[in-house]
Design a protein around this nucleic acid. Structure first.
Lengths: 160, 160
DNA sequence: GAACTAAGTTTTAAGTTGCAACTAAAAACT
DNA sequence: AGTTTTTAGTTGCAACTTAAAACTTAGTTC
């Protein structure tokens, strides 16, 4: 078979570039947060975020295009368009909260309000965490990047 | 004194804008990933990421300025500059991995290689998760945003 | 049907990105 | 010692993106 070099830097394949295609654009995360905070209309986002109209229009369209928000004219007043988070959009919450917590940890005088709480007991949530397959919390020292081919074929291998 | 209106939409205060100031810029997350993957030098980032030289230069400077990377000329060859993740940079891992996992879940034909594994057992990691104060995994249905002032004063209140 | 409102487009200026060519400094070769 | 190569940048310029303000369109209220 001759010269079967394995590609030295297989850094290319991963979901990050895909995620950044939408969420890497300026304002996307801020719109997501506002949306999660209960805002649904164009003029609400506009006055809440202090974004320019044309950019907001463009971003909302992209978020809808990517299935993160759904756009729907309201029945009672059909001028009003409601933007609502989809399940796909909700799935961005861990990323958003992780960013938020990081900004809070290292930012100067970040007040944090409103606070995220567990609905069940109304206590503030803990840190967004990287979990091992068995639920242990991992930090960067407990993590390794390895080539797919070098994965032992354990039976539990069906998670990430 | 007189007219002390409270700001109606206290959506303003949170760590997200702070985090996005650096990490919201195009390429920042890709550089972070490359860095975590073991790249350390200018020309490595350049050929790995396909970014323009001036932009890379600018981003690295900003990441250093914000304390996410440290810049250090190497002892043996002082032309070579080493960029290395700080603790603050490592703390962005949950956010980065959460984004990556989202991109993987919803992206089309994302291969994912290299794979993130738990160093201890070399099994792929689980999903980055939002945890309650007591360690339960929360999803968006179990979360609520409430005003700081409405927080009951529980003794455990010192986390997020 | 005149005025108003919500959402979006257009226009124009300012700022950012990306490419290509150039520079600066340290190391290696001859 | 002097030229070449390597590493990490900077500069100049064209293409693209963002922002602010004025304009448009469709639906609603008076």
């Amino acid at each position: 078979m001759g010269d079967v070099r394995e590609p030295l830097r297989e850094l290319t394949e991963c979901g990050l570039p895909q995620a950044l295609e939408v969420m890497g654009e300026r304002w996307s995360f801020m719109i997501l947060r506002a949306s999660f905070n209960g805002l649904h209309h164009f003029e609400e986002f506009l006055s809440e975020l202090g974004i320019a109209r044309n950019i907001l229009s463009n971003r909302l369209a992209k978020l809808v295009e990517h299935g993160i928000l759904v756009r729907q004219a309201m029945a009672d007043d059909r001028r009003k368009i409601e933007y609502r988070l989809t399940e796909k959009g909700m799935d961005l919450l861990p990323a958003m909260i992780a960013l938020r917590q990081w900004g809070q940890k290292y930012g100067v005088d970040v007040v944090e309000n409103p606070v995220l709480v567990d609905e069940r007991d109304r206590l503030p949530i803990g840190a967004v965490s990287i979990l091992a397959h068995d639920g242990r919390i991992l930090d960067h020292k407990g993590l390794r990047m390895i080539d797919k081919s070098k994965l032992g074929l354990h039976p539990e291998m069906l998670q990430n």
